[in-house]
Amino acid sequence: MSAIRPISDRKLLIVLTVALIILFALSLQQGPVALDWLIALQQPRDSVHGVILWQVRLPRELLALCVGAALGIAGAALQGLLRNPLAGPDLLGVSSCAALGAVLALYFGFAAVTALALPLGGLIGAALAAVLVFALAGRRATVMTLILAGIAINAIMSSFIALALNFSPNPFAMSEMMYWLLGSVANRSNNDLLMSAPFMLIGSLLLLSSGRFLDALTLGEDTAQSLGFSPAAQRKRIVIGVALSVGAAVAVSGNIGFVGLVVPHLLRPWVGYEPRRLLLPSALGGAVLLLLADIVVQHVSTGSGLKLGVVTALIGGPFFLHLIIKQRGFLS
């Protein structure tokens, strides 16, 4: 039995926001060049320190924040929709589709032509995934068909990614694809941020607006419908919200696992297991976790060696196991 007692929404949101601000300020201090961002802020934007702050560190950390928030809220919404704490944002196949889009952009060399080809490829992949999920699951998609369609799409996309790696034109292209798949927010530009952030924002707002339905869904789909909701329309809203937020996140950052799984799981006892109250804290918590992981990445490796997705998996895996063991039998 979990010993955590729920606390008020306001307290939880304040704690998470304060943590977010502190970590964001700290994260801007990180990097190979010793630089105080408070001082760099006062220097012209085209000075060396100004360029580092405005074109390297800010887009990187803002992207970490947005991606973390998108993954966190998508995980919370999907866990609510499937009424299963083991669901993650990669479940619908959106992330593997987005990853394939970006991998193909690398494979065919579009990414060498323009830096925008990578996120664009990812976004196209994500959009395709949303269409595919619905086509496969049909109009009267039950939750089970959605899951199975997601598994099928994941398998197909993974095989295409493997195919692209298999036939990669040269070892350099292959390592580029592999590294991209590992997940990172390093060396991202303001364009990456501007291209993906609106989708993540709209997707997150869609998910946030489905909170009441997720609450009602606690009592089962029939009861939710009898409370005046249309499960089909609400499911569609959540699938589109996940496709937008997760698709855009993967399109710019690659596969960053475990954030969307662990964060809602960790925060759930604090909101009394209420699906609606979990959404906003999960977005903030996801952003906090990813900023923290990115600070670790930059501390451990001075180059661009260690990838963010590797760190989240390294921390996330054992941590998740610990949670499961601690709460064993509680949710069964």
């Binding site: 009424r83 609450d215 606690t218 009592l219 005046g228 009394g272 949710l331």
Partner: peptide
């Protein structure tokens, strides 16, 4: 509508479950 088996999927507090009745 009271569904068969009276399902409840998350360990919500009883008063929060009852409050769901106000949703409509």
């Amino acid at each position: 509508y009271l569904a068969q088996g009276a399902p409840a999927h998350w360990p919500l507090r009883v008063d929060n479950v009852v409050a769901l009745g106000r949703l409509p």
